[in-house]
């Protein structure tokens, strides 16, 4: 059962030639004024997948199993004790809990990568370690801290982690809010010289990293460019974005999907 796309009308329908133009649920027909049974159920199926993506916990053991033998990773959690609290209290998701902070090792790191569950653990489950490994390959000569795995995490939790570890830059790889068409999209936020309370305007963002969006190699190339520039200019955020070359395949940069304002 494909829950993501509206069921096509019978062959020969005039919408058939138009459906490739958009993934929007166009030309789905009706019974009276209402949507037909198969479209109502397809929509409910897609919504269920998105809801499950929000509420499914990150499988930390499976994530660790993707690492190479001997490769370290540290597990931390935010101050939000559970998912309902996490959803109501984004402020708690931005701060480490005290036990986690005590466990982190300080060092002279150029960068720390964080795999945070955010609003779609499945996105991070699939994408975070491959991106982290790709980046290690691209960052020869950088002092890269061991991977940090963070649960009940918001983007700004990375700031707290970087401060605790003495890292000059943080890369937060985090699950984006699921939509009906994509429930496993990962976003990446780069912040130079992070501090607790750091504004989102001081970050750079790559979003829509998933099998039908930005690929891991594309995201890695782009992130490596941003990181080198961040180090050269000693900044991230608006100043860095302005200087970025236009890459046609990256369309959603700069809009933090977890922090979107109400005004769309």
């Amino acid at each position: 059962m494909d829950t993501k796309k509206p069921t096509p009308l019978p062959p020969g329908d005039a919408w058939d030639g138009l459906r490739h133009l958009t993934r929007a649920r166009i030309g789905i027909g009706r019974s009276g004024n209402a949507q037909r049974t198969r479209d109502v159920l397809a929509f409910q199926g897609a919504h269920a997948l998105a809801r499950d993506a929000v509420h499914t916990a990150l499988d930390v053991a499976a994530l660790r199993a993707q690492l190479a033998p001997g490769e370290e990773a540290q597990l931390v959690t935010s101050s939000a004790p559970d998912r309902p609290t996490y959803l109501r209290r984004p402020d708690l998701g931005r701060r480490l809990d005290d036990a986690s902070r005590a466990h982190l090792h300080a060092g002279a790191w150029d960068v720390v990568f964080v795999a945070g569950d955010g609003l779609s653990a499945v996105a991070v489950q699939n994408g975070a370690v491959p991106l982290y490994h790709a980046m290690r390959g691209l960052l020869a000569g950088w002092s890269v801290a061991p991977l940090v795995i963070a649960t009940q995490a918001r983007v700004a939790l990375g700031d707290d982690i970087a401060v605790a570890m003495g890292a000059r830059m943080v890369v937060m790889m985090i699950g984006e809010r699921p939509g009906l068409s994509v429930a496993d999209s990962m976003g990446v936020y780069l912040t130079y010289a992070p501090y607790v309370g750091c504004p989102d305007s001081a970050r750079n963002c790559l979003s829509n990293i998933h099998p039908h969006g930005l690929s891991i190699p594309q995201a890695a190339d782009r992130l490596a460019w941003l990181m080198r520039e961040a180090r050269r200019l000693s900044l991230t955020g608006v100043g860095l974005k302005d200087a970025a070359p236009q890459h046609g395949h990256i369309r959603h940069e700069g809009v933090p999907p977890l922090e979107k304002d109400h005004g769309k």
Partner: peptide, 20 residues
């Protein structure tokens, strides 16, 4: 279309809903 905004990733009303 179909109450599913594929750009902003949220759900609103469908055209069917408003017609109803």
């Amino acid at each position: 279309p179909g109450a599913d905004d594929i750009m902003l990733n949220y759900q609103s009303l469908s055209f069917h809903d408003i017609m109803t």
